[in-house]
Every structure is written in C-alpha cells, then in structure tokens.
Design a binder for these strands. Structure first.
Lengths: 158, 158
DNA sequence: GCGACGATACTCGGATACGCGCTGTCCGAGTAAATAGGG
DNA sequence: CCCTATTTACTCGGACAGCGCGTATCCGAGTATCGTCGC
C-alpha cells in the first residue's frame, strides 16, 4: 500500500484542527510533516476528485475539508488514494489449460478461490468503512487532549 | 496483490486432487494453467520455504503437499507468497515537522491512524486464517463434484 | 543371466534481465490581493 | 477621498523523469533412470 494514504489521513486531521476559516496551501501541510510538497499536492488532488477535500485556486488558496470528519470513513480515503480496484484480481486461470476443455457451464459459478479471497477483502473494507476520521481524531485527543492546540500554534507561527 | 497468490492456491488444490503418490513437476502444473513455467517454479519455491509444499529434486522429482489441505489456511499461502510485512506501514510522520518539537512522551502511544489501519488489516488476516484450502476445495466440489476426476484425467493424459 | 558402472535425461534452485507503477519534480493556467493612476 | 485598471504574487492542476518491485527468463547442481559392459 502506498504511503500516500498515511499522508492523506494526517492532512485531513490537520485540516480539521485548523478549522474551516481559510484554505490551507499544500506548502504549509507539506512543511508540517516534512513531505515533498509537489507530490503531496498530487495526493490532495486525488482527495479533491473523491469529494473529500475542496480546493480553492489562486492566491490565498489551498485545501479544506469538504465535509465533517464523521462523514469521512477510512475506506473513503483509501479508495481515493489507492483507487477502486480490489487487491486480489481473479484472472480465471481455472479456465485455461486443463480447464479449457471442460463445459462452459462449470464456470458459471464464480471461482471458489476468488470468492474466499473476496470474503477476506470485504472484511477489510467493512472494518475501514466502520471507522471514520472523527473516531481517529477522538482517539488522538484521548491520548493528547492538547494536540489540536499544538497544531494550531505551529501553523499560526509558520 | 501479486498474481502468484492465485497461482499458488490453484496449484495446491491440483496437488490435492492428484494425490500424494508421485511428486508433480513444475512443467506439468504450468501447462495445466498455461502459466510461465520458470516463474511458477519461483512461486512454488516460496511455498516450500513456508513449509506448505515439499520438493523432490532430480529426475521424476517435483512438488507435493507437505500437509493436508485442512491444515493450510489462505493466510499461510498469502504470507508465503507476499511476505510477512503488513500492507500499511506507519512512517511516523506525526513526529516530523510540526510534531518534532512536541515532548517525546506524546508519541509513547502508537499512532492512532496506524492503530485504525491495523484493526482493518487484522480483520482481513483473521478472515484469511479462518478459511482453509479444504474449505475452498469443498466449495469447488459442491458446485462441480467431478472436478477432481477431470483434473486427474487431464494430468494422466498429458 | 545378473550386477555394476557410466551416460543420459530430467527437475529443482538460485542468479540474471525486463517492464510497469509508485515516487518525485517541474512548469503553466488561473485567481485574489496589492498598487498606481485618474476622477 | 474613492473607484478602477494593471501589475504582482501566489497556488492549484496536470504534464514530465527516476527508481524499486513484481514479472519473466536462463543456466547450473543434483538425482533417478536407462543402457552398456564385464563377470
């Protein structure tokens, strides 16, 4: 899994802590995590295309959350960055070679291996869908209640 | 996810259907699914290193199952092919940039994002561990009871 | 005829190239603000 | 003093390279079989 997922989630949390008053430019967010600014911008663009962030072009532009954290699931972020394709892709090799001469009716039902793998992947996607970024934020603030203030201070100074 | 996982599972099922009488060489298995023989061999080697298959070198050599299908979980196969590393790797970017000057005690607890992602990945791994290749074989034979005979016939001819 | 030895063919195993996708970077289009000029 | 046109600076957005990993291949080490020779 690409590291852009981690970047995206941290940026969303930061945007939530900074509030919706002004858009935050890529350069600020990148400096806040010491990330390559141009490449981070690429990931943020993906979040915009997914409707998670809203971008404001031009001077004093930047990014802000398009909806509250409790309406953004981890699945939303992963799908936005990694794409909608499933990790396990069944290539139907059962129909090739030895299976080529079998009657086509045998392959009407989906491949059992594909079904089993899909079951596991659905469990993963379900766990991601059941967790929102609001839950993550709450977990952070339970451990460090002043986390939001720290972020606001740092970005106010920079 | 690499396609070697699908190859490996199909090969294990085939080896189970062919029985333990003789080792099956890579070339036969590759022909049975129209796969590149040398590359399939590489994947089978990984299964041997994981203790899922046993290899016999020399003439009339090949591969056979090292233990019955109900002792091989899908997790075993995935780990053997893809490696033991987790898909989501936390790079601790929370400690960089804005978080660099925060007291180190704040980072004693694991990153909340990492925890949330790990929870989903554990659900995936759990689902894979709860399914054995014997379950998959049963699912196939429920749909096509003669599947084993078909495989045996084809490999006896070739 | 039988056993032993050597040649042969076959198969695994690891070392060696190739291609694609993630990573990283750069430049142009567009916008808001600042500024200077005129009424 | 206020309004407007122009310049300026800033930021997003997509187009352009570099690199690592999965994909694919080839050749050598080792073994069982087959053939041959000697007894």
């Amino acid at each position: 899994m690409g590291e852009g997922v981690e970047w995206a989630m941290h940026c969303c949390l930061t945007l939530a802590w900074l509030g919706h008053e002004r858009p935050v430019p890529t350069a600020k967010l990148a400096a806040g995590f010491e990330l390559p600014p141009a490449y981070l911008n690429k990931q943020l663009q993906a979040l915009v295309r997914a409707g998670i962030l809203a971008s404001t072009p031009g001077a004093r532009g930047g990014f802000q959350l398009a909806r509250p954290l409790d309406k953004i699931t981890l699945m939303d972020v992963v799908t936005a960055i990694e794409g909608p394709d499933e990790a396990f892709k069944c290539m139907e090799i059962r129909q090739r070679g030895a299976g080529a001469e079998a009657p086509q009716s045998r392959f009407r039902a989906p491949c059992a291996i594909s079904t089993a793998m899909r079951k596991a992947e659905l469990a993963w996607r379900r766990a991601l869908t059941e967790q929102t970024l609001a839950d993550v934020r709450a977990a952070v603030e339970r451990q460090a209640p002043r986390a939001g203030d720290s972020v606001r201070d740092w970005y106010a100074r920079g």
